[in-house]
């Protein structure tokens, strides 16, 4: 076997990648959480899968897990929350937020690998950077472009989602740290 290809992924890595792709899909089955009444849009738990994949699996495997997930959505499986799927969703207004997921997970994983001794606050910051800053940095210009909206207006629409995303950051940080403690050499 040539070394470059076989060095890549062991069976265990492939199973983990599949597991976190499935986890992201399973999170889409949960009903969206409504909070603050009708003042804020309901949040789906799905991007929690992105944060967890990066924080638990690390850059390469986390990124590949989400790439697999997006691939499955693209071929027409209804894995996005609300049973959506297919190319249409990926090209729609929120397509940018979805297509950037592999990169988000990769960046979270990369930051965690650079700082293996990160405490809870730092872990939370890394997760928030990849899961909110990077995601919005791709999703908002995409929305502005597809909808010919302009950046400021798109940004205003997205502000409503930030509280929900912060809740997910806290959850992802707690779960990822717990998992790392239970399985130190994941």
């Amino acid at each position: 076997m040539d070394t470059t290809a076989s060095r890549g992924l062991a069976t265990k890595d492939i199973v983990y990648i599949a597991l976190f792709a499935a986890l992201t899909a399973a999170l889409g089955l949960m009903p969206p959480i409504h909070f603050a009444g009708a003042a804020l849009p309901p949040i789906s738990a799905q991007s929690l899968g992105v944060m967890l994949a990066g924080a638990v699996l690390g850059s390469k495997r986390g990124g590949l897990a989400l790439l697999l997930f997006i691939g499955l959505v693209a071929v027409g499986l209804p894995l996005l929350s609300g049973g959506r799927g297919g190319f249409g969703v990926l090209m729609g207004t929120s397509g940018g937020f979805l297509l950037v997921w592999p990169l988000c997970a990769y960046i979270i994983g990369y930051l965690m690998e650079k700082d293996t001794a990160a405490n809870a606050i730092k872990t939370g910051l890394y997760v928030a950077f990849g899961g909110i800053v990077v995601m919005y940095a791709a999703g908002i210009p995409w929305m502005a472009f597809i909808g010919k909206l302009g950046l400021t207006k798109s940004l205003t629409i997205m502000v409503a989602y930030i509280p929900g995303d912060l809740v997910k950051v806290v959850l992802a940080t707690i779960i990822a740290r717990g998992l790392r403690r239970a399985y130190p050499n994941l």
């Binding site: 290809a5 492939i14 199973v15 990648i17 597991l19 499935a22 399973a26 697999l68 691939g71 499955l72």
Partner: peptide
């Protein structure tokens, strides 16, 4: 393949992921 992508591994990952969704639920 020259870029290090192994189609067999991708197929394995796809079938595992589809099987895992109901298991996780």
């Amino acid at each position: 393949k020259p870029l290090g992508v192994n189609p067999e591994k991708v197929s394995l990952a796809i079938s595992l992921a589809l099987r895992f969704i109901p298991v996780l639920a």
